[in-house]
Each structure stands twice: as structure tokens, then as C-alpha cells.
Simulated scan of single mutants.
Amino acid sequence: MAGGRLVSMKDVARRAGVAVGTVSNVLNRPEIVSPDRRERVEAAITELGYVRNDAARQLKLGRSSTVGAIVLDSGNPFYAQLVGGIEAAAEDSQLMVIAGSSGNRERRERMYLSLFEEQRVRGILLASTGGSTDLVEAIRGRGTPVVLVESDPEAHGSSVSVDDIAGGEIAVQHLVAQGRRRIGAVAARQDLRQVAARLRGARRAADAAGVDLEVIAAEDLTVLAGRTAGEALVERSAAERPDAVFCVNDLLAVGVLQAFAFRHQIAVPEEIALVGYDDIAFARSTVVPLTSVSQPADLMGRTALALLEEEIARPDAAPRHVSFTPTLVERESTTG
């Protein structure tokens, strides 16, 4: 601060005894400035505490070096890995990523979308609750590209997705192949596209095999909610329990497994086989290693950023949709 106000480039130039243009060159193209002048400017910047107004610089240049990423739940390791993929790709492109979590709430998602647009980010990567389509289209119309992640492949604009219907289907097909005939599906937030698609695939596989599928409602997509759902299953008699459980994400599956393991009430997989979804790193190190449907979170993040860069380079090009096929990772929770 200089006299209670923000330090400007003019203040730095005056202290260093150079022109304002020289200060700008030191900040943006230091290789063209002589070592002596560069050292004087850098010393003045340090002494005065000058901080570049990057927002103003971006407005002048007409482009930002920052990308906004919005995920559904930052507490879910899957989304941490997804953002990690975005950040790795952004680093390769000399970009920075600002990430926010909507907490599965439309209101917060819309808040982040508006904030990122106001900050004039280069573009936005969005794992959406599905309730902000109008705002996304308005932001695109005003010139900020938005790439959807975990979206419906038929969605407007470029997108990256996983075939969640196939994911739910292969989970139940695996349980049927293990001889299970009474299958429970633990799910919450069925209004989310991903959850609805996974259940749709599970029902399709159950119908094809002629087995029962009971949807067991959880309060949220968390470990604690999974434990509560699992405890309710423990309270049932052996004849009333399913002999297999498919959870729509790994956090729910970990909670169910905790409930089953408490005082060794239900043996996994002997009494109930268990499958999760996402194949987070923790799935392989649970008390009973968890069979899970794997989706390539890191690759999805990298691909989403690549699509965003394509849109920026060629704004009139047709949107691209990239869909990945999930795979089943078998572990002891179904095959032990």
C-alpha cells in the first residue's frame, strides 16, 4: 500500500526510475528488459508490495488464464481425482484452475456459475445438478464456453460422460453371476442424472436375469448415510435381507460395509455380496476390499479441459461428446 491506497505500476516505475512500459515488460516479458533495469523494478515491487491487478489485465487482453471447475461434492474422492486431472492438464497449458463444490445443491451451483462468469474465467467445467441449464446457456451466449462433465451425452454443448446405465448393468450382472438372487440397490438423490442412470442399468440387468431388485433409499450419498442404510438391513431377519447389495457410489458402499462389519453381524461376501461405484482409492483398502464399478476420473478431467480448449480455439465448431465405458474391478466383497 502507498499512503493507504493500492500500489500502482506508476508508483513502481517512479521508485525504480523507469518508464511504466518497462514495468509492464518486466511483469509480462522480462526477457526483453536489461538485467539492471529488471533488478531495479523487481526491488521496487518488493519494497512497495505491488500486486498485479490480473483481472484488469485479463479484461484488456480479452482472455483469462483461469478456468473454473464446479463439482457436485468435494468430499467425494472421485471428484478430487477429477479435479486433479483438470489441474494436471491445465498446468500443461499454463492455466490455473479455481474449483468449487455445489454440494449437490442447485442454488450453490448457480452462484458459482455467476461468480466465474463475473471473474471472466477462460471457461467453465461443470458437473451439474441438472437445474442450471438456462443459466449455462445464457453464459455460453455471452461468450464464456461451458463444458459439461458427467452429463447426458445428448446435452447441448461439448460434454464428457460415462455410460452410467452400463455401469449399473454390469454391477448387477456380476452379482447375478455370483449366484445372487435378491439384490438391493442403495441410492440417494435419484433426481441426479448419474444416480438415475445407474439405477436404470441395475433394473435392466435384474429384469433380464429374472431376479428381484429392491431400491433401498439412503438420506445422502455419504458414508454416514450408507451406514444408516446398512444398519437398517442388519435389523432385518436373514430371510428378509437381500443376498447382494449394489450401492450407487463407493461412499455409500463403505458405510454399508461398516454397518455389516460391526460386531461381525453380517459376513461379506458370504451372506451379502457388496458392489460400489467410482472405484475410489479407499475401495481397495476397506476391511473387505470393495468390488466397484470404475470410471476414469483423471482422464475425464483431462478430456474436459481439452474440449474446453477446442471450443476456445474454434468457437464455431460443432460440439463434441466424449463418453467412456465403465469397467468392473472385482475384489473380495463379491468374490472372497
Rank of each mutant, 00 (worst) to 15 (best):
G3N: 15
G4L: 07
G4F: 07
V7A: 02
V7D: 02
S8W: 10
K10V: 14
V12Y: 14
A13W: 15
V20N: 12
V20L: 13
V23E: 10
V23F: 12
N25S: 14
V26T: 14
L27R: 13
N28E: 13
N28F: 10
P30Q: 06
P35G: 14
P35S: 14
D36E: 15
R37C: 04
R37T: 08
E39Y: 03
A43M: 04
A44G: 07
T46S: 09
L48Q: 15
G49H: 06
V51G: 10
A55K: 04
A55P: 01
R57Y: 01
R57T: 03
Q58T: 09
R63N: 10
S65H: 13
V67F: 09
G68C: 06
I70H: 02
N76K: 06
P77Q: 00
Q81V: 09
I86K: 02
I86V: 15
E91N: 12
E91K: 08
Q94F: 12
G100V: 03
S101N: 08
G103R: 00
G103M: 03
N104H: 11
R107A: 11
R110D: 05
L115D: 11
L115N: 09
F116D: 03
V121G: 01
I124N: 00
T129R: 01
G130P: 02
D134W: 07
V136W: 07
T144Y: 07
T144H: 07
T144G: 06
V147Y: 00
V147D: 00
L148Y: 00
E150V: 04
D152K: 09
P153W: 13
A155T: 13
A155H: 09
A155R: 10
G157T: 06
S158E: 01
V162C: 11
D163L: 03
G168S: 12
H174P: 06
L175T: 13
L175D: 01
A177V: 03
A177S: 13
A177M: 05
R180H: 14
R180S: 11
I183W: 01
G184R: 03
Q194L: 13
V195I: 14
G201H: 05
D207L: 11
A209L: 14
G210Q: 11
V211A: 02
D212N: 12
L213S: 14
E214M: 05
V215I: 14
V215M: 12
I216R: 04
A217H: 11
A217P: 15
A217N: 07
E219M: 13
D220V: 05
V223C: 07
V223P: 00
E231C: 08
E235D: 12
R236Q: 12
S237I: 02
A239V: 09
R241F: 05
P242M: 03
V245L: 13
C247L: 08
L251Y: 04
V254A: 09
G255M: 06
V256Q: 03
V256N: 02
L257Y: 01
L257R: 00
Q258W: 02
A259S: 07
F260A: 08
A261C: 12
F262G: 08
F262T: 14
I272K: 09
I272F: 05
G276L: 07
G276F: 08
G276A: 13
Y277C: 15
A283G: 13
R284S: 15
T286W: 09
A297M: 10
D298N: 12
G301Q: 03
G301T: 05
E310I: 00
E311T: 07
I312G: 04
A317S: 14
A317N: 07
H321K: 08
S323V: 15
F324H: 10
T327E: 08
V329D: 04
E330I: 10
T335D: 01
G336F: 10
